[in-house]
Simulated scan of single mutants.
Amino acid sequence: DYEDKYPEDPIYEETAPTARVWRTYLDESQRFDADRVSDWRDTVDVLLVFAGLFSAVVSAFVVQFSQNLQPNYNQISAYLLFELVSIQQAISNGTTVDFPLSSVNPTADFTPATSVAWVNGLWFTSLALSLSAALISVLVKQWLHHYMILPSGTPRERSHIRQYRYMGLRRWQVPLIIGLLPMLMHLALAFFFIGLVVFLGPM
């Protein structure tokens, strides 16, 4: 009980810098904050690890499949080289070229297939959401770390600083932001799996 823990304040000094009310407030607020912040940190830590691993997986898919957004110049070079060799062989043998020439044109405008554009769009969106969740998680961890560290000073000064930070926490909707982080990861997973379905559909 705070009455047993802290001596009674002299009369007219109930709100002095070292009064019992401030020390009691600090004790109660520290217990309250420790429980809430511990739960938030656990949630953010799990999301941060998952977002990092998921981003690495999506990045591997994006790096490979995004190459389909531009012409495959290796394949074009192989086609043109095959035609050139075939024509030279026909000329050296004194025969005519009796096979149709390909319509490959390396200077023509390239338009990726619709499915390729959709898959890349979905996977890039998934990666952006996952990285955003990771970035916000890091910022939240830094904010919580700063929130829990009170500077030195009298109990009244520390109580005022703690209350100021708590009001800032509510004003910036930090609990709501932490609650929305799993939704960001759910959206990232949804976009990734939709892209995977579109990618595997023609197979």
Results as ranks from 00 to 15, higher is better:
F32T: 08
F32H: 08
F32L: 06
F32V: 05
F32Y: 10
F32M: 15
F32E: 09
D33I: 10
D33R: 08
D33V: 13
D33G: 05
A34P: 01
A34K: 07
A34Y: 03
A34V: 11
A34D: 11
D35M: 12
D35S: 14
D35Q: 12
R36G: 14
R36F: 13
R36P: 04
V37H: 04
V37N: 02
V37C: 03
V37P: 00
V37K: 01
S38T: 10
S38G: 07
S38E: 07
R41D: 09
D42E: 12
D42P: 05
D42Q: 12
T43P: 04
T43C: 14
T43N: 15
T43M: 12
V44I: 15
V44Y: 03
D45I: 07
D45K: 06
V46K: 15
V46Y: 04
L47T: 15
L47M: 14
L48K: 12
L48Y: 06
L48M: 12
L48V: 13
V49S: 11
V49T: 07
V49R: 13
F50K: 05
A51Y: 02
A51G: 02
A51H: 04
A51L: 00
G52H: 02
G52A: 03
L53I: 11
L53H: 05
F54R: 02
S55N: 06
S55C: 05
S55H: 05
S55G: 15
S55T: 07
S55V: 03
A56S: 08
A56M: 06
A56R: 01
V57N: 03
V57Y: 00
V57S: 01
V57C: 03
V58P: 00
V58L: 01
V58S: 00
V58D: 00
S59L: 04
S59I: 01
S59Y: 00
S59F: 00
A60D: 00
A60W: 01
F61Y: 09
V62N: 01
V62Y: 01
V62S: 01
V62W: 00
V62A: 02
V62R: 02
V62C: 01
V63P: 01
V63I: 14
Q64Y: 06
Q64A: 08
Q64F: 02
Q64G: 08
F65T: 07
F65G: 04
S66E: 13
S66G: 09
S66F: 04
Q67K: 11
Q67G: 05
Q67W: 05
Q67M: 05
N68I: 05
N68A: 11
N68C: 10
N68H: 15
N68Y: 14
L69I: 04
L69M: 15
Q70M: 07
Q70S: 15
Q70K: 10
Q70E: 03
Q70F: 03
P71A: 09
P71Y: 15
P71R: 13
P71F: 11
P71D: 10
N72K: 06
N72A: 06
N72E: 04
Y73H: 03
Y73F: 14
Y73T: 06
N74E: 14
N74M: 05
N74G: 08
N74H: 12
Q75I: 07
Q75A: 15
Q75V: 08
Q75F: 12
Q75Y: 06
Q75M: 05
I76K: 04
I76E: 13
I76A: 05
I76N: 11
I76F: 14
S77L: 06
S77T: 10
S77A: 14
A78N: 06
A78D: 13
A78M: 09
Y79K: 13
Y79S: 13
Y79H: 12
Y79E: 15
